[in-house]
Nucleic acid binder design. Structure first.
Lengths: 174, 174
DNA sequence: GGTTAATGTTTTAAGCCTAAAATAGTTTGT
DNA sequence: ACAAACTATTTTAGGCTTAAAACATTAACC
């Protein structure tokens, strides 16, 4: 028989036996995400002198040769529009990106990585990829595949609930 | 046969076919965590007028009748010590917590929830629990159990790597 | 017993993030 | 054509977060 693992000293410490499975899954999920995110943040700063949000923004822009609108970018980064504004402000002043109004719709601004931005990303990207592999390294491939599938379900479940949050909040109107 | 799900417009949008499973699991995990966290944050503010970090801090303190030291609290919240300081500052000025030096070690400060703090948490807690259940609601119990197990493995894997980050960084010492 | 190292906490500086209000351009209905 | 509604983005105000430096107390070591 195995010995029990030591109780975690993080978010999960607040979970008790009588908590529902839901809550315990959530706390554990959050722990994992926070641990990985914190470590990637530290390494990006230490090895390359960039912040995590900076890297995330550049990574999203890198894929899109035609760039992204401000709204699309903030949606992808999962942050508010205002937040994206300040991130892109910095990218532009650094010379890593440009921001140009669309000719057909003057409201829309399209953000594109410059040559300099692309080069910067290419310098960091391989290390980032390696770090993720390291952090997940001892998890078996089959487990990762299962996890991928289960998370897809969970994500779908969340999206559904976000589309129809009415059931508990207000009941049916009279 | 099923139709393919629409491509996500979040973090995962940056993943491509040639990315490793590691990376795709990570992006999906992050998506899930961010979606849930953002929704809980919105509801806490809208329904109870409190912030998510405020709730997290109070939730951790609620369990511990003897309170927590500043270090223990920041470890549990997975934030820096400095961050915990400002959170507790606010709890104390609001009257939701007290901060007292330990008699045996004057360096250590022990934070405890006040009666007012406990009452505030008890008012919010049931709704929070319900929200988590709602967001995960359409995920089957067996899937949640599997997820719980797989995340345990992943978490262990991460912890291992964080303890021994030497393999790639410096090799073995001469 | 006095210096040095270690530990616990706070402060500081800079950047991140949200929610809400404001601005500006576009579409719709008449 | 004009007003109203809608959409895209920025601004503002306030709070969150980190990393590094500073401060204070305790432990370790001659």
């Amino acid at each position: 028989m195995n010995i029990a693992p030591p109780p975690p000293q993080d978010y999960e410490a607040a979970a008790t036996q009588d908590d529902t499975v839901d809550l315990r899954v959530w706390l554990r999920l959050l722990s994992c995400a926070n641990m990985i995110e914190a470590e990637i943040r530290r390494r990006l700063r230490r090895e390359f002198g960039v912040t995590l949000p900076w890297f995330d923004a550049v990574a999203q822009l890198y894929r899109e040769t035609d760039g992204l609108t401000m709204s699309a970018l903030s949606r992808r980064l999962m942050v508010t529009n205002g937040n994206a504004t300040s991130l892109v402000d910095r990218l532009v002043t650094e010379g890593h990106a440009t921001r140009k109004a669309e000719p057909l719709d003057q409201r829309v601004l399209r953000v594109r990585l410059t040559r300099k931005g692309r080069t910067a990303f290419e310098r960091i990207h391989p290390a980032h990829r390696r770090w993720i592999s390291d952090l997940m390294g001892t998890t078996k491939q089959t487990d990762l595949a299962r996890l991928y599938g289960l998370l897809a379900n969970l994500k779908g479940s969340i999206a559904l609930e976000l589309d129809a949050p009415s059931t508990k909040a207000e009941g049916r109107p009279t």
